[in-house]
Design a protein around this nucleic acid. Structure first.
Lengths: 198, 198
DNA sequence: TCTTGACTAGACCGACCGGTCAACTATAAT
DNA sequence: ATTATAGTTGACCGGTCGGTCTAGTCAAGA
């Protein structure tokens, strides 16, 4: 049973790393199994399909993202706007670390999957949509706090939260396209300055 | 010879449409040949590889983009900032038209390829990077004009142009993820309000 | 008329794809 | 000791992948 949890988790983590570094379509089940040191039969014991595995991978990504990025940025004793700046800094550090290690700026795992699969697989599209909606919720709450403490004027908070998320995703995509995490360092902090008026 | 131009062009246009609607990896050479009414032998007479075809597809996309979107937005007798708003409107109309026709919001063709292939194929990454750099150049020129005519204060123009492009790409990705072109209508106009200070 | 070279047709290649299956082992409850 | 269950193994499936190759069509130039 413990071994089983381990096997499932190994598959999940191998898939997460491979799909993030390459893409959904470019990573086969066989490669995931090799990387996890598991045979195909075991793979299909734990996951009914590659799609189902990918849904679990998105969950895994989001859990880790909340732990490594969101929790630190949004729980700190920072002013609301500075939480966005902290988020920008953490995003930079994360991408920089990966780039130094593997030589590629990988961008946002959710954005990558969304761009590749949204038109191909409705389940995957909806899963990523849900992740984005949760992020937007955090942004809205933070903007609420910013307005409450006078750091931000009256604005269209839901729209601003959406715009901030879009901007962040766009920056991650540009960093990936230029294969340069410095794009994030230069431009991501401006996320905190985005305002959609009422 | 005329027939040859036609064959090459048919392959190119079939590939453009299929890759845009699905993705690079999800579209095989056979499917492109079927769609173009061409046999594999002909395909490989005109293109050495699927990758080379895709490079040509990106060029094809950009030519069409410049004709259908850029030319109209940036040549009109609009104020510089209104050119960005015109661009937003054209982007919306384009995505809306596609969505009404095929039921999916496809997002930005360049962003899609960048997200999927940047870490997998250096040639493709660089090609899309070049396209983005050209777009940025147009944005810079327009911001220059905006500053010159007093529509915009002194700002960091190169950074603002980058931020605008990132924002636009992010909005397109969100529209794709939500499968809803209205995201573009609601949020893309705010592109004109982005400022990176000196 | 003969030759050349661009173009087309379609069979074919090995590799890989996602997924299945029956047989096997290890564990733990009865 | 027996049985049920969870987990593992590796051979195997039909289909598709990108790409090759040979034979042949066809129009233009000599």
């Amino acid at each position: 049973m413990n071994a089983a949890v381990n096997t499932r988790q190994r598959i999940l983590e191998s898939a997460r790393d491979l799909i993030y570094a390459r893409s959904f379509s470019e990573v086969g089940v066989a490669a995931i199994c090799d990387s996890a040191g598991v045979k195909k039969g075991s793979f299909y014991h734990f996951f009914h399909s590659k799609q189902e595995l990918t849904l679990a991978v998105i969950d895994e990504f989001f859990i880790e993202f909340k732990q490594r990025i969101f929790a630190q940025a949004f729980s700190a004793n920072l002013s609301p706007l500075n939480r966005f700046r902290k988020l920008a800094d953490l995003a930079y550090r994360f991408q920089k670390e990966i780039a130094d290690e593997i030589g590629h700026t990988l961008g946002c795992p959710f954005g990558n999957i969304a761009a590749e699969m949204s038109t191909q697989d409705e389940h995957l599209r909806h899963k990523v949509e849900t992740v984005f909606n949760q992020m937007e919720g955090h942004f809205r709450d933070t903007l609420d706090a910013a307005v409450a403490c006078g750091e931000v004027d009256e604005i269209n908070i839901p729209a601003t939260a959406k715009a901030m998320l879009a901007y962040a995703e766009g920056i991650m995509l540009m960093a990936k396209t230029h294969n340069d995490p410095e794009v994030i360092r230069e431009l991501m902090p401006a996320m905190a300055d985005i305002r959609i008026r009422l």
